[in-house]
């Protein structure tokens, strides 16, 4: 079994992914992107694609079929997913340099199903990924495969009733090969979630449906990695959810916890400022501690 990454290593990878995500956001048409929800999810994706998932990269045949699967239900974080897929080897440097949107590209503001490049669903319509993940988990069980299925939801997305149909199904059917993750960044388009429909009591809700809930500091890469491993390897008869407490827009000062960066356009100046803040040099200057 491969050794786990150190906290420093994970933070370095996360920083690179954060930078690459900002670059993709700037490369989007009119420089417009869901920057906030992309940046909050970085450490979750870092952990999944380094130490948690058997991604199947480079495998074929049976080994490929036995890979773990990831469903990005909050598909507006797709630009962050592309950064993770680039790190994991699913997107080559050339593919990662393609335009965002348009013809002849693999990259879109909301990912399209492309299994070879590690994208399970065509996302964009919230509330469906959890159900799809349940179907995937059932399929793995029927095939006798020990593949795990990971699904990432937004906290605003949990307003959707369809999410809870699937949560009930997963719990009732004891889909223990399924790990759900909530990117609990506390903000949705119209404002803080407690001012829209409430629901910040994620652990209470999920456990009442029959899941085990593990809370984690979602922007602490090692902490969320450890929580995901605990969820993955638990021998509980209940499926698990990791409630990752994150900050929307994390790592970029003008975006962090600002509701208007749910989606917005990066000016040239803001782009340069973001890249500067995320540079290794700036990190060193801050004393080498992301926390």
């Amino acid at each position: 079994m491969a050794e786990l990454h150190t906290a420093i290593q994970l933070e370095g990878i996360a920083r690179t992914m954060r930078r690459e995500t900002v670059e993709l956001c700037y490369r989007s048409p009119a420089h417009k992107a869901h920057l906030g929800g992309c940046l909050s999810a970085i450490e979750i994706l870092t952990a999944l694609y380094t130490d948690v998932m058997n991604t199947g990269i480079g495998q074929t045949g049976e080994a490929w079929r036995r890979r773990d699967r990831f469903v990005l239900s909050k598909a507006h974080a797709s630009l962050a997913l592309y950064a993770a897929l680039h790190q994991a080897g699913f997107l080559s440097d050339d593919e990662f340099a393609l335009p965002v949107c348009g013809e002849d590209t693999l990259l879109f503001r909301q990912a399209r199903r492309d299994l070879a490049h590690g994208m399970e669903i065509s996302g964009g319509s919230l509330g469906m990924g959890m159900g799809y993940a349940c179907g995937l988990a059932l399929a793995q069980r029927r095939r006798g495969q020990d593949s795990r299925v990971f699904v990432l939801l937004g906290d605003g997305e949990c307003n959707e009733g369809s999410v809870w149909e699937s949560v009930a199904f997963a719990a009732y059917n004891r889909l223990t090969n399924l790990v759900a993750i909530v990117d609990a960044n506390g903000l949705q388009l119209d404002g803080p979630i407690e001012k829209v429909l409430g629901g910040d009591n994620h652990a209470e809700r999920w456990t009442s449906f029959g899941f085990d809930a593990i809370e984690a500091e979602g922007n602490d890469a090692a902490a969320v990695r450890d929580a995901l491993l605990a969820a993955r390897d638990s021998d509980s008869p209940r499926p698990r959810v990791v409630i990752a407490r994150t900050a929307k827009g994390r790592g970029v000062s003008f975006a962090e916890n600002h509701v208007e960066w749910h989606d917005n356009s990066l000016t040239d100046d803001l782009y340069r400022q973001a890249i500067t803040e995320l540079s290794d040099a700036a990190f060193e200057t801050r004393g080498g501690d992301e926390r």
Partner: peptide, 26 residues
């Protein structure tokens, strides 16, 4: 028994789960 999947009164879930199984080759 494995070929019979009950989702309860939840038609949206019925389609999502059915679709995933179908795309996995069932």
């Amino acid at each position: 028994p494995e070929g019979f999947v009950q989702v309860g009164i939840a038609e949206q879930d019925q389609v999502s789960i059915g679709a995933a199984l179908a795309l996995e080759g069932f």
